[in-house]
Design a protein around this nucleic acid. Sequence first.
DNA 1: GATGAATGAGCCTTCATTCAT
DNA 2: TATGAATGAAGGCTCATTCAT
Lengths: 205, 205, 205, 205
Amino acid sequence: MASRIEGYDEKIIACAKEEFLKKGYADASLRTIAQNADVSTSTIYTRYLDKEGLFRFLVEPAAKGLKDLIGRSLSEFTTLSASEQSEKMTEYSDKGFEETVPYIYEHFDEFKLLVTGAPGNYYQEFLESLVELDTACMKSFLLRTGSKAMQEGRITDGFLHVVSSAFYSGIFEVVIHDMPMEEARNYINELRAFYGNGWKEYYQI
Amino acid sequence: MASRIEGYDEKIIACAKEEFLKKGYADASLRTIAQNADVSTSTIYTRYLDKEGLFRFLVEPAAKGLKDLIGRSLSEFTTLSASEQSEKMTEYSDKGFEETVPYIYEHFDEFKLLVTGAPGNYYQEFLESLVELDTACMKSFLLRTGSKAMQEGRITDGFLHVVSSAFYSGIFEVVIHDMPMEEARNYINELRAFYGNGWKEYYQI
Amino acid sequence: MASRIEGYDEKIIACAKEEFLKKGYADASLRTIAQNADVSTSTIYTRYLDKEGLFRFLVEPAAKGLKDLIGRSLSEFTTLSASEQSEKMTEYSDKGFEETVPYIYEHFDEFKLLVTGAPGNYYQEFLESLVELDTACMKSFLLRTGSKAMQEGRITDGFLHVVSSAFYSGIFEVVIHDMPMEEARNYINELRAFYGNGWKEYYQI
Amino acid sequence: MASRIEGYDEKIIACAKEEFLKKGYADASLRTIAQNADVSTSTIYTRYLDKEGLFRFLVEPAAKGLKDLIGRSLSEFTTLSASEQSEKMTEYSDKGFEETVPYIYEHFDEFKLLVTGAPGNYYQEFLESLVELDTACMKSFLLRTGSKAMQEGRITDGFLHVVSSAFYSGIFEVVIHDMPMEEARNYINELRAFYGNGWKEYYQI
DNA sequence: GATGAATGAGCCTTCATTCAT
DNA sequence: TATGAATGAAGGCTCATTCAT
């Protein structure tokens, strides 16, 4: 027994999603959202504090979810023994990312929002957080496999960062271009494989 | 002999740059720009038509310049014979990109603007145009070298697009993160090498 | 045995005081008061009816208390015989006002509120009520002492009003300027003496 | 030949006056003012910068005018020789204030606004500035006449301040109560005389 | 009695743009 | 060409208040 009219909040959320997607964060109007949702503007403030609060409410769960998913996948990889890691490098990746694509597509609107309509550095910061997870894992991997690439300066923090950034930016290309999910899955896997090839030259001891 | 006071327009441009960089396109204020430049707001309209016109005036020359530079570099590559291309694949890249990094750093503000403060899909469209040049060149290369990768479906248009997008997104990471030029040059070269490795598996006949 | 948590209401009152003092009546926010007092906004309505009710609850007791004090002091004076009044004119004043200053300082915040942060004509009306007590007493005094000053038009209602208003406005200067109590006591006594001198010329028969 | 429609600005001013008088500063609405003046809200911003700017524009000239008038009158008095001052103490006052009352009534609305509808401490600060002029003059007078009242502590800065504050607060009673000008002139003169009497006891050497 | 939620009204302010001069 | 002034539109936000629970 809900004291709140069923689907009420969802209506605000749906309308907000639509407006933010259509106009981007800065140009989206809370008034428009409220009107479309048959709610007073103030209600948005009651429920979500302010414009940014509403946006975060929309986007943050999906962002956090993806971060967790990738974090979990990477940390599982990290816990493997050096030889297992080395061995399963390519194969594992595919598995680890198996869930990623479906997750993105289950929350496609949210990621679209995050990628194309977020205020300020929101998207950049999100990307950054993924890149940090990724580079930390990579460094741990290099360490465990006894690679001397970093000591020898063939691989630096900056290089890891740039390559990883390029990779994740590439991932979100599928969102930017509304790629169908199956297509996306293929491309992302291919991108991973492509990166796997790229790394081979570096992480050999 | 200019009837217009020397450095007049430049002041508007400088102030516009500053404002757009600080606040992003949507939140930048023409009035603020005009005030800082000691000019009436209307003057901006007289000279640049409107807000977007001003922004384009700021950013477009650098964008076009870079597009031309990369286009030229790629088309030179395209005109090589198949064997030369294949042979110089990696080596050439470095050369072709030799001018790219300095160019970006000569117009750093403009690219920063383009990458982090442009309205709507401006940056996406710019990236897209680079990606098109790049993929067109790549396809021509595959054709000339007689690679069957595309016929066999190992390489598709979508794949080319994603990989290329990831690459150029990676390039502009150096702008987003205000990387010093020398550092940037290294990373970009490394990124190119990294991609070179990645491609090897695919374009062999 | 209170069913209401001890000190509960006092917290609202304290927070209201603070907010009204800081922002003045019009700009004070009930929500801010409620939040600071760890109470829902509605609670304020339950207990004090509305914003004005809360303000009155804060200020009215002290205002009434001062009015009563001054009223009592003046009416005691009024009940003296004509000769006694005339004789004690100056001396009495000091006594009558003896309690006034301490009373004001016991409720300093409330008077500060009344004087500097009250809505509309609240303060003016309060001053007015004191002035009325005062002028009524003065007229009675003139009557009893057989002074012909009013008949002869040397003293009019308007004049009484202005002089009395000036006096009480002067009194509350000590509140406006956060004067320490001892200082205030001196000044007010001096002001009374000053006024005593002023009157001498008028009320002689 | 005015490029601005005749009486245009005056209409805004008139409507602003009306609104501020009716509701006080905080509760006055720029929208209402603009509507009544048949002008867009933005126009107010173009012309007066913001709400406070509009208010100041209304009130400041009159406030400054009165301050100048009183300042001039007091400084003329100050330049008299000690004996002249002492002699003309009472008489002069009347003259000096001769212009004051008409001036207040020529700008009655503005003073009404200042006294009953100003934001924050505006009125208090205005009063304060008059009091400062007044006390400075009084101290100079005591000095020149060789009075020892201050050295002996019979008159202190605080006392001067309180008495002067009471006096000017009394003056503006005529505004608060919409007293007719002739009546006001009488009362103010009487008040001055009354104060003259009060001072006698103090400034005798 | 207490309160979470909702809301209509209203706020001041800013903006990009136009246009007569 | 340059601009001061005007403006319609819209913005995010806050408020006092109500009311069902």
